[in-house]
Design a binder for these strands. Structure first.
Length: 426
RNA sequence: GGAGGAAUGGCAGAGUGGUUGAACGCGGCGGUCUUGAAAACCGUUGACUGUAACAGGUCCGGGGGUUCGAAUCCCUCUUCCUCCGCCA
């Protein structure tokens, strides 16, 4: 969530940013309400502190009086303390209510977009930030979409997924399964080469973790929930990996942490249907390698650029045409200050598929998670957190199958052959 | 799943109702000494909130209670350790 301090000191920037997100006026008004409640809170706190201070003093005096055997005077003071206690209880209640109100309002406000974020309401308004130089392939007349290719070459089976679990769960087999495993290893190796520490995190997380990265409360419906144990299946490795840093105070030299994690990701995707979710386009379980960074505020945007370069290099090595979008204010995630989406070309479907989303959350997550570092002056400062997919598998598989199909099979990109141990799917 | 024990500052570890935000030690930081370093010695060293700055307030796993006063007593939850059972 956005820190109160930012509302207090940078209100103008906040309001400008929120306009880019096309927030309703009543939502923008929350900023003023929060600031008002905050001064109320301070007033109540000061009053309460004074009363507590008095009663602390009295308690000490009473102790000394008892020690010196002056029970009578001590008992007299007890009634004074009882009065103070009554008052302090009321103030405490008021304080609690005010803070709960502030918190509730704060949770409703998204992160403040970076100045370079374009204005706009929907995905239509996203700005094409970069396009790969690779030309879109011209496919043969009889070219097939990936779900037909999967049937032809027995790569994955949707019907079996339905039988075993339900729609949106895929059973990969044969070279389809091996391609999947090859991609996972390829992406992990590339990340490790780029200096990321490999993590294998838990796939279920508790409520605190889901809250820490912002899945709760607003994306509750997106996650599978194991009620009996009060645990959530992760929608992305971002959740467990970033939560390593929940409630942590780092030393300044520990900043610049680079982590990567491979996990399956589980998403309910309630309400999705139709042609755009066909095949691997949108599934309930898919594999993804996530990269996460914890950075000094001065260095986070350089880190973001570095992450873009990393993802670009992966797509280049897979020989896929892609483009990078800079998301507009209206299409950005709640927690993000700047987000770039990577889309790869799905040649047979003739559409772009999102395969990566790289974001700088600035202090939004670190504030929520209570992640801080100490600078040289000994001040506690929230670092910036960033993450991105590098990469999400299901759609990459779709794109590889479609873009690299030929008359006599599907060609495996050079860089991947050491991992698949086969050069062609036929 | 059953039985018992524990949870204190970066670490280790005292503290069982009244100057205890917390001893001692290690670690960290600053200094003295030294050509430099080590050793030794001296000092300093938790978080949050608050203030212009002081002051003040909160925090000894979480929550609740008893009391004028709780790290210390009671209830409850969580986690960890030991033993038994089960198990890849």
């Amino acid at each position: 969530m956005v820190e109160l301090k930012i509302f207090r000191t940078e209100k103008e920037r906040v309001l400008k940013g929120y306009q880019k997100r096309n927030l309703k006026q009543e939502q923008i008004d929350l900023v003023d309400q929060i600031l008002h409640l905050d001064t109320e809170r301070k007033k109540t706190q000061a009053e309460l502190d004074q009363i507590l201070s008095q009663s602390n003093h009295l308690a000490k005096e009473i102790g000394e009086l008892f020690k010196s055997g002056n029970a009578q005077e001590a008992n007299a003071k007890k009634t004074a303390v009882a009065d103070l206690k009554e008052k302090s209880k009321q103030l405490e209640l008021l304080l609690e209510q005010t803070m709960a109100q502030i918190n509730e309002l704060q949770l409703q406000l998204p992160n403040v977009p970076n100045t370079v974020v374009p204005h706009g309401k929907t995905a239509e308004d996203n700005e094409v930030y970069f396009s790969s130089s690779r030309p879109l392939p011209v496919l043969a007349e009889n070219a097939l979409p990936h779900w037909e290719l999967a049937k032809k070459y027995k790569l994955f089976d949707m019907e079996l997924g339905v039988k075993i679990t339900g729609s949106g769960f895929i059973l990969y087999r044969n070279k389809g399964a091996r391609l999947q495993r090859a991609l996972i290893n390829f992406f992990l190796d590339e990340a490790v080469k780029a200096g990321y520490e490999e993590i294998i995190p838990p796939l279920l997380v508790n409520e605190d973790s889901a809250r820490g990265t912002g899945q709760l409360p607003d994306k509750e419906g997106q996650m599978y929930y194991a009620e009996k144990d009060d645990l959530y299946l992760i929608p992305t490795a971002e959740v467990p990996v970033t939560n390593i840093y929940r409630d942590v105070i780092l030393k300044e030299d520990q900043l610049g942490a680079k982590l990567c994690g491979y996990t399956p990701c589980f998403r309910r995707e309630a309400g999705s249907y139709g042609a755009h979710v066909k095949g691997l386009n949108r599934v309930h379980q898919f594999d993804k390698i996530e990269i996460v960074r914890i950075e000094h505020p001065d260095k986070s945007y350089a880190a973001l650029d570095e992450m873009l370069e990393h993802v670009k290099s992966l797509l280049e090595k897979l020989e896929l045409p892609y483009r990078i979008l800079r998301l507009c204010g209206g299409d950005m995630g709640f927690a993000s200050a700047l987000t770039y989406d990577f889309e790869v070309w799905s040649a047979a479907q003739e559409r772009w598929l999102e395969v990566s989303s790289v974001s700088n959350f600035e202090t939004f997550q670190s504030h929520r998670m209570k992640l801080r570092f100490k600078n040289e002056k000994g001040e506690s400062i929230h670092p910036h957190t960033l993450n991105g997919s590098a990469l999400a598998l299901a759609r990459i598989v779709a794109s590889i199958l479609e873009n690299h199909q030929t008359e006599d099979g599907i060609r495996i990109p050079q860089a991947l052959i050491p991992y698949t141990c086969f050069e062609k799917i036929n």
